[in-house]
């Protein structure tokens, strides 16, 4: 029954079939060409728009949006003091420090794939890295020299911030965050020093932690330490090393401080640091110079103990 209702397709000759196939091929070709042409403008594709959300043609509005709508870029403001983009004001030192932190995290994670924090294996793992792991030596060198370089760049960053008076109101607190970052950077480097478990690291850490013995009150050789019942087995040095000598517990503790605890804390403080740079009104300068004659003497009368609250404009 169904057969009867269906219109019988007319028998086609070979030529007609070929013609139809050609037609189909032409349509396909056109579609391919069309889509290929569309690929020349990737920013119009659905994929692209779903990732980047806004147009990226060269208009002031879109230049701003490309910064503001990207979670990584929006650490930046959309616009910035025209003289601050030159190298000579900030020396780029804060940025370089952060970049080195990223490089160190990257190489550090790769190193962790090859390293066991145990007395039996640590030193051998380093030898293995140096001689057998492809690019292992390069990896280790980059991690080591990157760490040294980061310390130098933190110091230079601090020096720059001081020379430009950038710690002055309203950036006092960010300077303090910076000081903590400086300490954390040094501690990161120091805890890493022990990990190869060689003579260099062992004695450096021994010398370093021996000082902790002398902590007043909390060290067994420090002033008033013995009087408070401190011994080599319960003082602050013992807590740092997990023992009375630099041994396997010290290696493990070093490893955990170095690979987990300090990087995490440092990262959190960096987030705060960058956030504060933005909230304090961006980079401090280069600002127009102020003249001595424009400095007004403070009002007479009772004054807060430290200074007027941070964030309020300087006293006129």
């Amino acid at each position: 029954m169904a057969d009867e209702n269906q219109p019988q397709a007319p028998k086609k000759g070979l030529g007609a079939v070929l013609e139809e196939a050609k037609e189909g091929a032409r349509a396909l070709k056109e579609k391919v060409q069309e889509e290929a042409a569309a690929l020349k403008e990737p920013e119009k594709t659905q994929l692209f728009r779903s990732i980047f959300r806004v147009k990226h043609d060269d208009q002031p509005r879109n230049r701003s949006l490309s910064v503001l709508t990207n979670v990584f870029f929006h650490l930046h403001p959309a616009k910035i003091n025209r003289d601050a983009v030159r190298y000579n004001y900030t020396w780029g030192m804060g940025g370089i420090t952060f970049f080195l932190f990223l490089v160190l995290s990257f190489t550090g994670i790769l190193l962790m794939f090859y390293y066991h924090p145990t007395k039996a294996q640590a030193f051998r793992d380093i030898l293995y890295l140096e001689h057998d792991v492809p690019f292992g030596k390069l990896l280790r060198n980059m991690h080591r020299w990157g760490a040294h370089l980061m310390i130098i760049t933190v110091w230079l960053h601090m020096f720059r911030v001081f020379l430009t008076g950038s710690y002055k109101r309203p950036r006092e607190f960010n300077w303090c965050v910076g000081v903590l970052l400086l300490v954390l950077t040094l501690l990161l480097s120091f805890t890493g020093y022990l990990l190869p478990d060689d003579q260099l690291g062992f004695w450096a850490v021994t010398v370093g932690t021996n000082m902790a013995r002398a902590t007043p009150l909390l060290g067994h050789e420090g002033p008033l330490g013995a009087e408070l019942g401190m011994t080599p087995f319960n003082d602050v040095r013992f807590a740092l090393l997990g023992g009375s000598i630099v041994d396997s517990n010290a290696l493990l503790r070093s490893y955990i401080w170095h690979c987990i605890a300090i990087p995490l804390v440092a990262f959190i403080f960096m987030v705060v640091h960058f956030w504060r740079v933005r909230k304090d009104g961006g980079i401090s300068g280069p600002a127009p110079v102020m003249l001595e004659t424009e400095m007004k003497d403070p009002r007479k009368g009772p004054r807060p103990v430290i200074m007027t609250p941070s964030g309020t404009p300087p006293r006129p």
């Binding site: 001081f162 020379l163 430009t164 008076g165 950038s166 710690y167 002055k168 109101r169 950036r171 006092e172 300077w175 303090c176 401090s284 300068g285 280069p286 600002a287 127009p288 110079v289 102020m290 001595e292 400095m295 430290i306 200074m307 300087p314």
Partner: peptide, 15 residues
């Protein structure tokens, strides 16, 4: 340092 430096000049430029 930021809390004891009472000098308001030189904020944001080298001098």
């Amino acid at each position: 340092i930021p809390y004891v430096d009472a000098n308001p000049l030189g904020n944001g430029y080298y001098t």
